[in-house]
Structures are given as structure tokens and as C-alpha cells.
């Protein structure tokens, strides 16, 4: 028995309850839980965006801080890489549906590598950007938002790694793929948050300027 059944979240039912069937949900019980959890992740980012929006919109925080620069242009490459990794992740899923094991494996590896490159580029950007979280409030919120996102990329990479290991062990079939579905939903979420973050933090011009 491999993987995790999409219909039954968890085989923790009693002897008498073996006949018990949960209400059918299209997503499956575990992905449903994940999607609900992701709304709370949106709120976590929302908390930092609320601070950011209040500080910039109502408290007239200069953005970026005077004398500093936020590298919108070079980060566009990171953005492209992360979006590409979302597509490769979906290609892995399509490969699974068509039962192409090698495609599944290598597209997952490609997503993992692209995600890792993204993290590496972010780390380099941190190094080159010229200010620290402690320099000023702009630095604090910049590093918090990108760092929070980076932590999510890291979690996504961990999930992808687990998926790669499990694919190598022959797990997942076109009918049993909960672990993979959960990972790809999470990975797309991380991607979407980045698009929002890139738009609001890197691209949004200062109203004074």
C-alpha cells in the first residue's frame, strides 16, 4: 500500500466504523484541510501587508528608504524562475496522470531545482542590498515579508523533496496522489503570494516620487 488515499483522509476509524464513508468532497479530505489552512496563511502574510500598507499609505513611510534602493529589475529574474517552477510542478502532475514515471520524477526535480535557485538568488540579494532588518523600518518590513515568503519556499522545497523521495520509491498512482496534490497546491500558493509580494513591495512606486 503506498501513498495516501484521496477519498479517506486517514484510516483512523474504529472496528465498527469501517463501513463509515465521509461525505464525498471533490478535493479529498486532506487537500481540503490544506486549502483551509492556506486561508490562514494568507492572513499571516496579510498581517505584515497590513502593517506595510498602513505605514506606506497612511503613515507616509518613504519607500524605499532615502538613500537605498530596492532591486526590482534583477528580482524579475527570480520571479520568472519561481513562476516557471509552478509550471514544472504542474507538468509533473500531468506526467503522473499519464503514468509517465520518469517525467514525473524529473519534472519534480526541475521544480525543486528552480525553487532552490530562487532561494539562492534571494540570499544573494539579501547580501547585496545594502541595508539590514535593523537599519530602519523599511528594512524591517522588507526582510520580514521576503523572509516569511522565503520560509514558505523552504517548506515547499521540503515537501517537494519528500515527494521526490516517494516517487523514487514508486509511490503515487494516477488514482492515489494526495501527497503530490498537497505539495503542488502549496507550491502554487507560494508562487501566487510571491507575485503579489513582488508587485506591492518591489514595483509599487512611492507616491512622492
Amino acid at each position: 500500500m503506498s501513498g495516501h488515499d484521496a477519498a479517506v483522509g486517514h484510516d483512523h476509524h474504529g472496528p465498527a466504523a469501517h463501513t463509515y464513508q465521509p461525505y464525498p468532497v471533490r478535493l479529498g479530505i486532506v487537500p481540503l484541510g490544506l486549502v483551509i489552512f492556506l486561508t490562514s496563511e494568507i492572513s499571516l502574510f496579510g498581517a505584515f501587508f497590513l502593517w506595510y500598507g498602513h505605514a506606506r499609505g497612511l503613515n507616509n513611510l518613504a519607500w524605499p528608504a532615502i538613500g537605498y534602493e530596492i532591486p526590482a529589475d534583477s528580482t524579475s529574474i527570480n520571479t520568472a524562475i519561481l513562476i516557471a517552477s509552478s509550471f514544472t510542478c504542474e507538468l509533473a502532475f500531468l506526467s503522473l496522470m499519464k503514468n509517465r514515471r520518469r517525467g514525473l520524477f524529473w519534472w519534480l526535480v526541475a521544480s525543486f531545482v528552480l525553487g532552490a535557485i530562487f532561494l539562492g538568488l534571494q540570499a544573494r540579494e539579501y547580501h547585496d542590498i545594502g541595508f539590514l532588518p535593523t537599519t530602519n523600518a523599511q528594512g524591517s518590513i522588507f526582510f520580514s515579508l521576503t523572509g516569511l515568503h522565503g520560509a514558505h519556499v523552504f517548506i515547499g522545497l521540503t515537501l517537494l523533496l519528500f515527494c521526490i523521495i516517494r516517487v523514487a520509491r514508486g509511490h503515487f498512482t494516477p488514482k492515489r496522489y494526495t501527497g503530490l496534490l498537497v505539495t503542488s497546491i502549496y507550491w502554487h500558493f507560494v508562487d501566487i503570494v510571491w507575485i503579489l509580494l513582488y508587485t506591492l513591495v518591489y514595483l509599487l512606486p512611492d507616491k512622492v516620487a
Partner: peptide, 15 residues
């Protein structure tokens, strides 16, 4: 030592 709530450094206490 971040500066979220240090007004002199751009911090926004009301937020």
C-alpha cells in the same frame, strides 16, 4: 532589533 515600532526610524506604532 528591527525597527517596526521605532518612530524615529520610520516605525509605525499605530499599525
Amino acid at each position: 532589533g528591527t525597527k517596526f515600532f521605532v518612530p524615529e526610524m520610520g516605525g509605525d506604532v499605530l499599525a
